[in-house]
Design a binder for these strands. Sequence first.
RNA 1: GCCCGGAUGGCGGAAUUGGCAGACGCGACGGACUCAAAAUCCGUUGCCCGCAAGGGUGUGUGGGUUCAAGUCCCACUCCGGGCACCA
Length: 980
Amino acid sequence: MSETIRTDEAPRFRYSARLANEIEAKWQGYWEEHRTFWAPNPSGPLSDGFEQMAGRSKLYVLDMFPYPSGAGLHVGHPLGYIGTDVFARFQRMNGHNVLHAMGYDAFGLPAEQYAVQTGQHPRVATETNIENMRRQLRALGLGHDPRRGPATTDVDYYRWTQWIFLQIFNAWYDDAADTARPIAELVRQFEAGERAADDERPWAELSPIDRRRLIDAYRLAYLDEAPVNWCPALGTVLANEEVTPDGRSERGNHPVFKRPMKQWTLRITAYAERLLADLDLLDWTDSIKLMQRNWIGRSVGASAVFPVEGHEGVEIEVFTTRPDTLFGATYMVLAPEHELVDEIVPVGWPGTTRGDEWIETPAAWRGIFGVDRTPAEAVTAYREFAAGKTDLERQTETREKTGVFTGAFATNPTNGESIPIFIADYVLIGYGTGAIMAVPAHDQRDFEFAREVELPIVGVVRPPDAWLEAHGVTADTPADEWPEAYTGDGIGMNSANDDVSLNGLETAEAKRVIGEWLERTGTGAPTVTYRLRDWLFSRQRYWGEPFPIVYDESDLPIALPESMLPVELPELTDFEPRIVDDDEQSLPLPPLARAHDWVNVELDLGDGVKSYRRELNTMPQWAGSCWYYLRYLDPTNDHELVGSEVERYWTHGVRAGGAPAAGGVDLYVGGVEHAVLHLLYARFWHKVLFDLGHVSTPEPFQRLYNQGYIQAPAFVDERGFYVEVIDVEERDGDYFADGRPVTRKDGKMGKSLKNVVTPDDIYRDYGADTLRLYEMFMGPLDASRPWSTTDIIGVHRFLQRLWRNLVDEETGVARIFTDPPDEQTRRLLHRTIAAVRDDMASLGFNTAIARLFELNNRLTLVVAEEGAAPSEVATPLVLMLAPLAPHTAEELWSRLGHEYSLAYEPFPVADPALLVDEEIEIPVQINGKVRARIRVPADADAATLESIARADAKIAALLDGASVRKVVVVPGRMINFVTD
RNA sequence: GCCCGGAUGGCGGAAUUGGCAGACGCGACGGACUCAAAAUCCGUUGCCCGCAAGGGUGUGUGGGUUCAAGUCCCACUCCGGGCACCA
């Protein structure tokens, strides 16, 4: 139910929704007309007015790129946008040249899916949605620079997205220099013989095709045939980051399958170490840094090579974090998909030795599908079993270890032991080398598998006595009688050969010694491995950026020259992704394949006009959002991504306290859901651009702030379905919809929970300033909090009272007197200014607003007495209100007699002399309990305070007869008498 | 399972380095204005005992450090988030 204000009876100039709407429309028009929020660049077409900014320091405030949804905004969306706007306006008043703008991340699935359903071009829906969102955001009074709001779908924009892709494609990572370099430098190194192909063949002996293959393998963007996340329901492949832990698509929650496919991949892993290390330069919350660290997943250990017996030159490389346990490796495990498996599987089962005894392959080794199969059959059966497991089954399963013997053996390089090679699905193809050495005594998974399959367990680290005791064993108990693996550190044992001994060494020392030995003997080396995988970068969609890539008859990719950009999306009428066949193994057929005239082109790429085939995939939605913050800086530049002077001006590092600054955006506000995906991808692209000299800072976002979500009451009926919140009524604490009981189940506001409140409703009932103020007042910006329509009235009343304190409700004329206010009011004013300044600087808008409430409450008393407000209070109060409720503040400012906008008026500064009181009240405690309060001079010393306290009648009475053991006096704070 | 957050009145939330718990707002209650209602204005409002003065108690639970703990330490409960067979 809306709070309808009976405007017909209210005074003409009472602050009501009607008046607020009038004021808001007026000032939104004014700001637009006067270009109030145009932030001038130091040079170039957007530099008009830069001289007037001389002496001001720059500030770049940024919101995460919004997707223009067809549903329009609900009140949860603009929370962060309001926060950045308040901060930007505050800092503008503090003398900064503030850049604040908003564009649209407009490629992507929803528009395309809508297009598939309706046959309407996605551009149409996208443009309508952007228009609607612009309207809703404009009504909020956000102070954006309207010249800087590109959409990723603009040809002028995606031309540069394609250009960045070309930079990435035409670069390689120079590990020695730890930087990306133009690919031409690599070609030159090969030509000059400074570098040879992996197979040692000299450049001169390579065919042109082989040369291209060789170079392509170094590029930061490369085609890779690898198992990828294939989502048939979406008709596309997905990046690892877009797949949920239970193996479903993050968008739409559809099942995702692993399929080998040839796809574009970006070499983000080359940057793993820098992405990790440079987190230290950033002012981000620890939790976001931690999520990035976890995603990158650095782990330190060693690689080791195990020769496969009977196969000359065939080796299995493993990674281990516990190289000190190498002597305890009693078997190996390959991931079922490992490429060596087929090569090493023998025709028949071999025998093996156990102690001195020669035995046939034990039944337990041959797998769970019967013992009468050949090794090849057993391997095939196991692979089918493993691949058939859905990810959900893997979740719910008790994680019982299964696996099968390949029939092959490897040699443990430390002790020469012959150890069997298994495949098992507890080893993942996607991590490390997809193969492990198994040390069952010191790894719980290996231990469980060894128990299951009857493999030997040899202890090589002596556990501490406490562990032995807790597990009911002694130091003499063989490891295969332990109840579980010992995975901690300890003293090495059973670990010596003629060349090296780890016996008696602490774990850390043993790791060092064996690392040296591995390196010396060429059987391995200390290594660092990352969990991060390269970024799968192609999608089988229509509504995305086409790749600036063509293929010739060799099927190898060829980058188009910059001069051929943009590669525009061809017009289609059917946008649906298809699959080649209707079975499980089906392959995606991108919609662009149907644009035959576009796909097959005649081009002159330097050696005459020839026929080429265009790349059919498009880029993922992340592509456009990886770099938009750079385009905001120089949106009209048609010969550069961003002009370097402009780029340096807006992104040079400023960090308080002299700590090393990463530079980039000064304040970046957005939801925590982008903690890994967008923020990792954007950092990666930025670093590539940095390495190649296109940007001047190593990081894109100096300070990141995660705003919370607006939650809202939601209700489910007996069947568990959500019901529209508007249909729910409350009776004595119970809830009913259409007379049926429903249960309250709050959650993030959104269409799916049917609990959406739109900003348009709130504008209508209260005005945009009330909405802004309410969202900022609800709680700290970084916390999620429940929307409460009843609470809004509080901030609306505040605006109404403040307005009434300054303006006659009947005539609209300001009621101001110029005499100074009383001393108490003046002191409160200056305390308020000091507190509001601090709060706004630290984004503590909720407490800043509370302070303004207090000052206004005081002003109400003054006005009641005097009939008008002292201008010495009114003026700073309006200025302090301006960032939060800009329309109302502008209107008051103008009614106070000012001709121009207050957007660049200096924010009030407190007089320090008025912040200190001469006399203060402090509590007097007896044994920690407050028994009295005394008024004392603010600078009274401890002795004075004690004597004043003792003189207090009540304290004197309570202390009478008690023996005071101790007196704690904190001058300016409190006094505590401790008695026996 | 591992790693991060968090828990304060009926509700949203305030509380520098340990120093008066509950700022500010909502709601509720009482009053003024009104024929009446809404709006507006004034007052009260953590809980318990008490007519009152006043006293007791109180920041998820249990313990500890301290003259003093929402804040620090230990153990736990619940809620939210991230990761998860990561070698």
